[in-house]
Nucleic acid binder design. Structure first.
Length: 573
DNA sequence: GTAGGGTTAG
């Protein structure tokens, strides 16, 4: 009997499971509830809901564990409807009182499904049943609130807990990291240490994610040292996060070193390296890596393809992108998802093949989402296509009317083609809906600080020197006869005013500061919250040549490496 | 307790 239990639990495929199932029937243990419970969870976890239901119905004396196996099976698969249905049946048909395990399952199903209302109900249920003292129940609720956008509610729960476990701390850290609240991550981590809780690899992963949001170079080295000291350097999860952090801080080579040190990288690690190449615009390296991954017998999944396609898109590798998009299902059996369509629309649109992008959207088997229309809108901005841009924007407004970026993008498309009236109409529409754009800023790390610059910023104590350096750059640019690209200033103002505005862009200020305070041997790394402007892009190229400096700029999506008067993006971005 | 997912990587 014990060996049968083991055998059932070890099933990894349907055939396997059915064979054992037959054995169970033959051995007359089929009426044994314990074995039935296991078979139910295996069938659900493999996704064979009908087999699971049939097996479940055949269990003679269903106890709480039987019901929990059934419910948690659906929960694991993220099928909330079946989960809730089973929960109701359990109470109505069997008249059983759900215990904490039941609650854990249904609440995590709500988290996966984004069902905040139902989740709140179960929270209330937990309070009523007196389960809130259970650390695991509180943890799963913290996670639910945090994942569903109610970080405050999660924090209140965390704060009111009498006893917290390591997982509680890890959860609250991870949630703050995922919401981009880096300072809170650092603060909470210090509290955790003071509370005498010993961190594990999940803690490290959350910390690393928190640093990614800070987006600074030095942070990666500091946490790396901490990881090394704590003995987590061989951990695959930690290494993968670390790799990603280095890549996101502009240190592609460091990321590559960590990847190289992994003895047996899994699909996630390979994909992380691939994503790093994609982010840095290294299309052919990404493709080479992908081929090595496949040759090594590692199966690419849908995330791998998202990054592979985005790598092709960033590098303008149109035919390669088309080929991989076709191959992903035909050769690798990975069904294209909506994100892959977004990537393809981006790839085609960016290359100016707007008609191809549109026909791809029309032929999609699913309804296009904000990602797809957003990619088209972005392409229309690059290629100044008012008509298609309007269509994309209209669809975006229908799907989400509160994202200011779409209004700005459309307004810019109008301005770029001189349609100032339409542009200002969109601006006032934005005002009417009380939407304010993100002010653009650039970050630069120096010493132990991160400096933030906005357009025309004068808040830095050495502002005078920064502006003097900036003037010097502008003068050299002028002397070299470099054509200024004022079309990136989308206001209906005089040319002279435009030049003045463009000269004070946050990335230029950060660059001037970087030139003043750093040694020539290290690259100047600037982080932007918005896409780099075209004029700044050419000025950066020029400065990299005359000052003999490497300049690295990260925008929300990718990196530009400037050296010897050229950019790694080859002016394709 | 027979043991039924508390967090964490691209």
């Amino acid at each position: 009997m014990q060996s049968l239990l083991w055998a059932v639990s070890s099933c990894r495929s349907l055939v396997n499971c059915q064979a054992i199932h037959a054995l169970v029937i033959k051995s007359q243990f089929i009426n044994n509830g314990f074995i039935g419970d296991r078979l139910v969870s295996i069938y659900t976890s493999l996704g064979f809901n009908d087999y699971a239901r049939k097996m479940f119905d055949e269990i003679p004396d269903k106890d709480l564990v039987s019901w929990n196996s059934f419910i948690s099976g659906f929960s694991k698969r993220g099928i909330l409807a079946l989960c809730l249905n089973a929960f109701q049946r359990m109470r109505n048909e069997a008249d059983l009182k759900p215990n904490k395990v039941t609650l854990l399952s249904v609440i995590s199903a709500c988290t996966v499904d984004g069902a905040l209302c139902e989740g709140k109900c179960f929270h209330g249920f937990g309070v009523k049943m007196g389960y809130m003292e259970e650390v695991k129940v509180a943890n799963v609720l913290i996670n639910m609130y945090g994942k569903l956008g109610m970080l405050d509610a999660a924090y209140v729960l965390f704060n009111t807990m009498k006893a917290r476990s390591l997982v509680t701390w890890n959860s609250i850290l991870a949630l703050h990291a995922q919401h981009g609240h880096s300072d809170d991550v650092v603060g909470l981590f210090n509290l955790m240490r003071r509370a005498g809780v010993k961190p594990d690899q999940a803690t490290m992963v959350a910390l690393l994610q928190g640093c990614t949001e800070l987006g600074v170079v030095k942070q990666a080295t500091v946490v790396h040292a901490c990881i090394f000291k704590c003995g987590f350097e061989g951990d695959m999860l930690v290494s993968t996060s670390l790799m990603s952090l280095y890549a996101k801080s502009g240190q592609l080579i460091a990321a590559n070193v960590i990847f190289g040190e992994l003895t047996k990288p899994d699909a996630v690690a390979w994909t992380s390296m691939l994503a790093s190449y994609a982010m840095h615009g290294c299309g052919s390296e990404a493709i080479k890596l992908f081929e090595n991954m496949v040759d090594g017998g590692i199966y690419p999944d849908h995330v791998t393809f998202t990054h592979l396609l985005s790598a092709c898109s960033h590098a303008g590798l149109i035919s390669e992108g088309r080929k991989y998009f076709e191959d992903m299902f035909r050769v690798y059996g990975v069904q294209p998802r909506i994100d892959h369509y977004s990537c393809m629309v981006d790839l085609l649109g960016r290359a100016g093949l707007l008609e191809d992008a549109v026909s791809l959207i029309r032929s999609m088997p699913m309804k296009p989402n904000v990602g797809v229309w957003g990619a088209l809108l972005g392409a229309c901005r690059i290629h100044n296509n008012v008509e298609l841009g309007k269509e994309a924007a209209d669809n975006l407004f229908l799907l989400n009317s509160s994202d200011h970026r779409n209004y700005i993008m459309l307004s810019n498309i109008y301005s770029a083609s001189g349609q100032w009236k339409d542009a200002s109409k969109i601006r006032s529409m934005m005002k009417g809906r009380r939407l304010v754009g993100d002010p653009g800023y650039s970050l630069f790390e120096h010493g132990n600080r991160v400096y933030q610059f906005v357009v025309g910023d004068q808040s830095h104590p050495n502002s005078d020197k920064i502006y003097a350096k900036l003037e010097e750059i502008v003068r050299k640019v002028h002397e070299a006869g470099l054509v200024r690209q004022t079309e990136f200033i989308l206001h209906d103002v005089e040319e002279e005013v435009k030049i003045d505005m463009i000269n004070k862009h946050s990335e230029k200020l950060a660059l001037a500061f970087g030139l003043l305070v750093t040694n020539t041997s290290i690259p100047i790394t600037i982080i932007k919250n918005l896409r780099i402007c075209g004029d700044c892009h050419s000025v950066m190229k020029f400065v990299s040549l005359i000052e003999k400096r490497t300049i690295i700029v990260r925008d929300p999506k990718r990196f530009h490496h400037f050296a010897n008067g050229m950019c790694s993006c080859k002016d394709y971005w």
